[in-house]
Design a protein around this nucleic acid. Structure first.
Length: 433
RNA sequence: GUGGCCUUAGCUCAACCGGCAGAGCAUCGGAUUGUGGAUCCGAAGGUUAUGGGUUCGACCCCCAUAGGCCACCCCA
C-alpha cells in the first residue's frame, strides 16, 4: 500500500479518464456560450450561512452533509463551508456585484467541483463536479423551456439519447400551503400504513414523501391529492405555458408529479433528467427548477430565477457505458503528429532542439528523450499514436533527417529546414483519424 | 450517520485442511552495436490494506482501524 492515498470519497482522474471528461466539458462550454450563458466562477468555499440560509438550517444537507472548513489561525471568525452546490454562491455574487443593473435576465454558467461530506459510494463522491446554469431575473415560462431544452441538447450532444426529461410544478407561496394542508390531511388518514422513517418526515417535509421509493409509500401516493389540482391561476397558467413552449420546440418530456424540491424557495417549475434503466439510485443525471424566492432570502430584492445542475461524474459514467456498448471511442488530444527519434540515444540535445523548433510553429510533436536505442524509440512512437517519426542520424551534418511514415513503414530523407512546412501539410491533409 | 459484503504485484486474479506467495497483462532491459504494435529470453515489482491476537507455523482463524462497494439516510 502506498504511504498516501486520495482522501476518502475523492479520486484521481488519470489522463485516460480525462479524455472523456474533456469532451463533455468542451460540449457544455460550447453550448453555454451559444445560448448566451456566460461563465462565472465563485469561490470553492463561502460563509456557511450562505448555504445554511439558502438551503435551510434543519435539513440533512446542512446538519450532516455540509463540508465545513475552519481557518486554522487568524482573525477570521466566520465559519466556512465548501460549496455543496453552485446556486447559492452565484446568487450571492449576483447580489454582491449588483448584477440586477445588467440587462435581465442574467444568464450564467459555472462548471466546477462541489463538495459534500457524506458516506461515499459509486457515483457519489465527496468531491464531485457539476455544471450549473442559471437565468436570474426572468419570471416568464419561456426561459424555463429554454433551460430544459438546453439540458436535453447537452445530453444528446454526448450521445446520451436515452436521457429523459421529467417535468412538474410545485406551485408557489400562494397555492402551495393549501396543497400541503390537503396532502398532510390525506396522509394523516393513512398514517397507520406509514413506514417509520416516513412518519418523522410527515412533519419535517411532507412534500418529499411524494418521491419516496418505499413500496408502501408508493401505494399511498397513488391516491394522494395532486398539486396540479391546487394550483392558483398564475401557477397553472405558467405550467401550461412552459408545456406549450416545450411542445413547440419538440422536446419530449414526461409529466412526473413526484419531481419535488423540498426547499421553500423553490417555486413552480421543477424538472429532472433521468436515465431509465440505470442501476440503483444512479438514474438522476441532473435537475433543477425555478427558485423565485432565493434572491430575496439571501438579501437581495425579490427576483425570479431558474436554474439547473448536471452531475458530471454520472454523465461521464453514462458516456463510458455508451462507449463500451459500441459507441465511438473519443480521440486523445495529446497524440503527436510526429515523434523525434535518434540513432544516437545520447544526443538528446538535437532531438529536443528539433522538437522545440517544430512546436514553435504550432505543430504537436514530441521528442523521445529516454536514452534508449532507436528500435525502442520507434516502438514507443507507434504506441503513442504518432503518424510520423523524424529519425535523426548520420545525415544530420548534411542538414537531413529521415521522415518515416509509421503507418506505411516507408521513409525518405527531408531537409530539417523543410520539416515544419511538410509536417504541417501532412497534418492538415489527413486530419484527425 | 446505520447495516451488510469486500481488500494478495501498477491492473485482472491464483495459492489444497493453517505448511516456502504465483501467473497473465503492463513496465524496463536483451536477442551481434541505424529502424516498429509480433515472437523469444530476462529483470524489476509484495511487511498478502494497516495494527494487534491465536498458533510450532497465518494470505487463510479472531479483534480493531483504514479504504472500496451495496442497501439505507439524503440528494441543495
Amino acid at each position: 500500500m502506498p504511504t498516501f492515498q486520495a482522501p476518502r470519497g475523492t479520486r484521481d482522474l488519470l489522463p485516460a479518464d480525462r479524455v472523456l471528461w474533456a469532451r463533455a466539458e468542451a460540449s457544455l462550454r460550447d453550448l453555454a456560450a451559444r445560448y448566451g450563458y456566460r461563465e462565472i466562477e465563485t469561490p470553492l468555499f463561502e460563509a456557511s450561512a450562505v448555504f445554511e440560509r439558502g438551503v435551510g438550517a434543519v435539513t440533512d444537507i446542512v446538519e450532516k452533509e455540509l463540508f465545513r472548513v475552519s481557518p486554522s489561525r487568524g482573525e477570521e471568525r466566520e465559519p466556512w463551508a465548501l460549496r455543496p452546490e453552485a446556486t447559492a454562491g452565484i446568487v450571492r455574487a449576483y447580489i454582491e456585484h449588483g448584477l440586477h443593473t445588467q440587462p435581465q435576465p442574467v444568464r450564467l454558467s459555472l462548471y466546477g467541483a462541489m463538495f459534500r461530506y457524506d458516506r461515499p459510494q459509486a457515483g457519489r463522491y465527496r468531491q464531485f463536479y457539476q455544471w450549473d446554469i442559471e437565468a436570474i431575473g426572468d419570471a416568464g415560462p419561456a426561459i424555463d423551456a429554454e433551460i430544459i431544452e438546453l439540458g436535453s441538447r447537452f445530453y444528446r450532444s454526448l450521445g446520451l439519447a436515452m436521457v429523459e426529461a421529467r417535468l412538474n410544478t410545485i406551485g408557489d407561496p400562494v397555492c402551495r400551503p393549501g396543497y400541503l394542508k390537503a396532502l398532510t390531511a390525506y396522509y394523516q388518514t393513512r398514517i397507520g400504513e406509514f413506514p417509520d422513517l416516513a412518519r418523522t418526515r410527515l412533519v419535517s417535509n411532507p412534500l418529499r414523501l411524494l418521491d419516496s421509493k418505499d413500496p408502501a409509500m408508493v401505494e399511498i401516493n397513488r391516491h394522494a391529492p395532486s398539486m396540479w389540482d391546487h394550483l392558483c391561476d398564475p401557477c397553472a397558467e405558467h405550467f401550461a405555458a412552459v408545456r406549450v413552449h416545450l411542445d413547440a420546440l419538440g422536446i419530449p418530456y414526461r409529466l412526473s408529479p413526484e419531481i419535488v424540491r423540498g426547499l421553500d424557495y423553490y417555486t413552480r417549475t421543477t424538472f429532472e433528467f433521468v436515465r431509465p434503466g440505470a442501476e440503483g439510485q444512479q438514474d438522476a443525471l441532473g435537475g433543477g427548477g425555478r427558485y423565485d424566492g432565493l434572491v430575496e432570502l439571501l438579501g437581495g430584492k425579490p427576483t425570479p430565477a431558474i436554474g439547473f445542475a448536471l452531475g458530471m461524474d454520472r454523465i461521464v459514467h453514462a458516456m463510458q457505458e455508451a462507449t463500451a456498448e459500441g459507441g465511438a471511442a473519443s480521440a486523445d488530444a495529446a497524440v503527436p503528429i510526429a515523434v523525434i527519434v535518434g540513432a544516437d540515444p545520447d544526443d538528446t540535445v538535437t532531438r529536443l532542439r528539433i522538437a522545440t523548433d517544430l512546436r514553435a510553429t504550432g505543430l504537436a510533436v514530441r521528442a523521445d528523450l529516454a536514452r534508449r536505442k532507436l528500435g525502442r524509440q520507434l516502438e514507443a512512437a507507434v504506441r503513442d499514436g504518432a503518424r510520423y517519426a523524424v529519425i535523426v542520424g548520420d545525415e544530420l551534418p548534411d542538414g537531413l533527417v529521415q521522415l518515416r511514415d509509421l503507418g506505411a513503414a516507408s521513409q525518405k530523407p527531408v531537409a530539417v529546414s523543410a520539416l515544419a512546412a511538410l509536417l504541417r501539410r501532412k497534418a492538415s491533409a489527413a486530419g484527425p483519424g
